[in-house]
Amino acid sequence: MSTATTELTYTSDEMMSIAAARALSAGQRCFVGIGLPSTAANVARRSHAPDLVLIYESGALGAKPDRLPASIGDGILAETADAVVSVPEVFNYWLQPGRIDVGFLGAAQLDKFGNINTTVIGDDYANPVVRLPGAGGAPEIAASCHEVYVIVRQSKRSFVDRVDFVTSFGHGRGNGDRARLGLPGAGPTLVITDLGVYRPDEHTSELTLTALHPGVTVEQVREATGWQLRVADELARTPAPTSDELAVLRALKEAS
């Protein structure tokens, strides 16, 4: 039992990274995107899941960086990896046959069925309002990993009813769409934001709020959601970051 009453101060971004890190289990093989996913995965590996296997699309299998990589091809990934392989090999031999447990992705837009857009904002692909970077490895990561975790800062702009462009397929328009398309993995099973945690409803696959981070209200979450949000009957409260978790996260950031 905790007897400490000291209030730790932390940001909502830190809460998000730590909540995401906690979702990763020891021994899992995790395909990691750069940015928020990489931060969370490295916190997990340096705390409760030291044997977490980090796979980066640049070709580093089992990377063990002691700081956050600045890019997907940061030299520290190759130098600390169990194996370094070519980019075609990463996708063809390691991702495509289903060897990876968790695909950890970010998103510019995420919709209520967990579809991801990182391509364009606006309805007209040829004349976009905002041109985004594009797909990278995400479409096949979202298809072939056993499950997908998405980490994204939540707002009405990022959390939308329907994405402007499906870059990476989540659950389509609802339950059964993945199976109909023959997609091998389970798709997004967990979404973590700076406000809370979401899981797809087991019948409809619609993302449902299942946990609130400390200090966040359902009203705040609804304000930052672009659809009529469903809330789980038993809404959990994310435990606040521990001092150990914050120390690991901050040390990684400082080393970078």
């Binding site: 996708f91 063809n92 495509q96 391509t119 692909y125 797909a135 479409p139 096949e140 298809a143 072939s144 462009f165 499906v166 870059t167 990476s168 397929f169 389509g172 769409d177 993945r178 398309l181 023959g182 997609l183 091998p184």
Partner: peptide, 13 residues
């Protein structure tokens, strides 16, 4: 040949 793009809008553009 690859197992790719399934369900995405990339194939349509």
């Amino acid at each position: 040949v690859l197992r790719g793009y399934t369900g995405t809008d990339l194939a349509s553009v």
